[in-house]
């Protein structure tokens, strides 16, 4: 314990401890880095379908790969970085570039054969129908 008294106020160690505590609160950084969650996703449901919206602006729709396997929807693709002319200076660089992959687990009652995907205004919209049997039915009371 002699060290503690020798260095009673080690500010750097304090900052380090604070950083670790913040990491605990906000989640540890992934070994794959921060992908900034690209594309951002919204998911909604209706009685007849599950609707997934992936906000993937500036991606060539032909290069987006959408797969549905065992109730898991996977969206992969790549967004190319913008070209920077020679002798140009990049002042702000916030937009995602590179390969992306996002995975959503869908409810059990979906019909994997009734999926549509459209890309409009930079948003990929995947609509997956639910099976007929799972749709709520009104039961008549005799």
């Amino acid at each position: 314990m002699i060290y503690r008294s020798l260095f009673p106020r080690d500010l750097f160690a304090e900052f380090d401890r604070l950083q670790r505590e913040l990491d605990q609160v906000f989640g540890l950084p992934s070994i794959r880095g921060v992908t900034r969650g690209f594309p951002a996703m919204n998911v909604g449901s209706t009685a007849r379908s599950v609707e997934v919206y992936a906000f993937a602006p500036g991606v060539d729709p032909a290069t987006i790969d959408v797969q549905l396997e065992q109730g898991v929807l996977t969206i992969t693709g790549e967004r190319k970085p913008e070209e920077v002319p020679q002798d140009a200076t990049v002042h702000i660089d916030e937009r995602f570039a590179g390969r992306f992959r996002r995975v959503v687990s869908l409810p059990d009652d979906i019909d994997p054969n009734a999926v549509t995907a459209t890309y409009r205004d930079g948003v990929l919209h995947v609509s997956v129908a639910r099976r007929e049997a799972a749709q709520p039915r009104r039961i008549a009371i005799q």
């Binding site: 969650g37 951002a40 919204n42 998911v43 909604g44 449901s45 209706t46």
Partner: peptide, 10 residues
């Protein structure tokens, strides 16, 4: 779609 309920929104 009509009557959609959000499950998850980023």
């Amino acid at each position: 779609p009509e009557g959609m309920e959000p499950l998850h929104a980023e």
